[in-house]
Design a protein around this nucleic acid. Structure first.
Lengths: 198, 198, 198, 198
DNA sequence: CATGAATGAGCCTTCATTCAT
DNA sequence: TATGAATGAAGGCTCATTCAT
């Protein structure tokens, strides 16, 4: 039951953070929405930032965890197939964490402390992606530096698309495939590639 | 001379916003850094948020303005060439606005008002990109919906890469080309495309 | 217990408002005098003006309430008797509210909002008085306009006398009768009227 | 020309004080309305309060001066006639000073300093009235104390009536007589007195 | 005399956090 | 564990006043 309360706090907070932003959301708003007393909040979280960080870390762990299992397939898989899997997996976990994801990406640098948490998260994500690239030999001749750029670019691409589709356009889970398709095909940026097919 | 002061406020604010975050930066910090008195701040800006918004809007206008001139070339240009031009142009203007860009992307949703400014900015950017896609016939069979996803994904891709390279890695202007190259080639996501070339 | 605090705030505020004036009294002065913390003030009142308005309205209601019960007597009562009753009742309630009364009369127009509250109060008072005049047939041939002038004049007369006696001269409750006597007899403005009686 | 400016400041200030109240009127409002620069204000007045005090004192002097000439008539004049003269004179001067009068009565106690100026003004007025009472032998058997009460009551009566008529109802100068009539007859508070005459 | 940009002390208010019950 | 009244530090903003030109 204590756990219930903790969860209700987190749920209320996420809802409010997303709607009004982290700073405009007062602890008093959270407890009101969670149906508990002001003081009770501090039985479960050390501070407002503590709540944010814990929720953010849980979410980041889930996202990173989901991607961490990736490069288990045969190294023979081709690039597009691998990318498809990664992107779809990312989008799916992003969909389920769309609220907190949005919040993280918007308020992740409000304080130096949070900032570090976020930087670490993105660095971890980038390393996972690079590892996958290497495992499947996707960008064979790239330097570490170039791989990093690609990794961050991919993260930005998926995050922004997820934000646009899941938050702004309110896409449902069933449209994940559609979005994945678009993102994978983005590689084809022009007639020349299309031309190759014709 | 008044303009000087205004500029010194903006410069000091951008520096501080980027270092400590918007909320942790007090007006008193800004005026101290700008070498003016507390009250002087309010001769130039109605409020702290006003400063943020004005700086953000100026920057957004510059970015959107830079991209707005794009689709002037012949419609015969192929996709990669066009993308190369767009991405390079974006990265260049992002480089010059890297401070405020970072701040916008991190604090752009702190208040409902700011949020709208940002949403409009991204929508405007997306429309510019879609217009370019259409002008050069880059994603010929895509629906409007798919084009939007691509546009937002491109924005996220470039923004995140710019953030990583210009803010975190402190790349200089001379490395814009390198990054552009990587982002354009990202289309090739695997051996199959490479293979086509070999 | 919460009510205790509220009352202590009101009491401290009235004392200070009267001594130093509304604007020279800081919220910090009030809370210091009330023995509470700065923030506690805002648990009971929305703002300093809110405190003023609530206190003023309570006082005005009490005053108007006291006079509202007046015209219950037989319509046969003669003018002076009725006036005596009204004036004595007014002075008594003014005595008990002498602090706030003073403040209202001095600061009631500091802001447009307060101004309206006061205007309404005086209008209400004037209407009560006019109603009483009519009930006892005191100024039988007067137009509505004239009755209004008389009503406001009476209000001013009693207020100023109360101010002089209760605030400046520090009269006690036992001197209410004396003052009432003087105010009622004021009708006789010279020997001729006196002479008429003798 | 310097005097012109001084007058324009005073005029603008009176207008604004009356409309928005003393505290809500900023020096910047006054100079804007007077068509001068911010700094120019301080060439003519030491401070905002100085302006208020000087304007108030000028007005008070005019009022008191007008009444000071009163008891020049023959001591044979009867009470009502004397009262009529005094009240009409008061109302007339009040009419011409209606703006500042209003302001004084509303903001005269905002600071201890102003407060004293006002207290002195009313005391002076009361003494003038008492002197007149004595000169014409109007309240022959009254003690000093009683005379004071009457004097203050008269002041309150006239002030409030003037406020109601000239400020709220916007009466013109030609209605002074009407108001005077009502105030003088107020002595007759009921049919019994009227009856006594008939 | 006139200007108006600059000043900076000061106040109201907010809100995360605490603690007695 | 739960409460919610109380706390008080901190910051945005105002505005009367000054002063270099």
């Amino acid at each position: 039951m204590g756990e219930d309360k903790r969860e209700s706090i987190v749920a209320a907070a996420l809802e409010l953070f997303q709607t009004k932003g982290y700073h405009s959301t007062k602890v008093s708003d959270i407890v009101k929405a969670a149906g508990i007393a002001q003081g009770t909040f501090y039985l479960y979280f050390k501070s407002k930032e503590d709540l944010f960080r814990k929720a953010a870390e849980e979410c980041m762990d889930e996202i990173a965890g989901a991607l961490d299992q990736e490069p288990t397939g045969s190294a023979d898989l081709d690039g597009p197939t691998v990318m498809y899997g990664m992107i779809k997996a990312s989008l799916t976990v992003y969909y389920h964490n769309r609220k907190i994801l949005h919040i993280i990406s918007r308020h992740g640098e409000d304080s130096p402390e949070l900032s570090e948490v976020c930087r670490n998260y993105y660095a971890r994500l980038a390393q996972l992606i690079i590892r996958t690239f290497k495992h499947y030999n996707i960008f064979p001749h790239y330097t570490e530096e170039q791989l990093e750029i690609v990794a961050y670019a991919k993260i930005g691409m998926v995050e922004k698309a997820a934000y646009h589709c899941f938050i702004e356009q309110q896409y449902g889970l069933e449209q994940v495939e559609l979005v994945t398709q678009v993102l994978v095909e983005m590689k084809g940026c022009g007639p020349e590639t299309e031309g190759g097919k014709e």
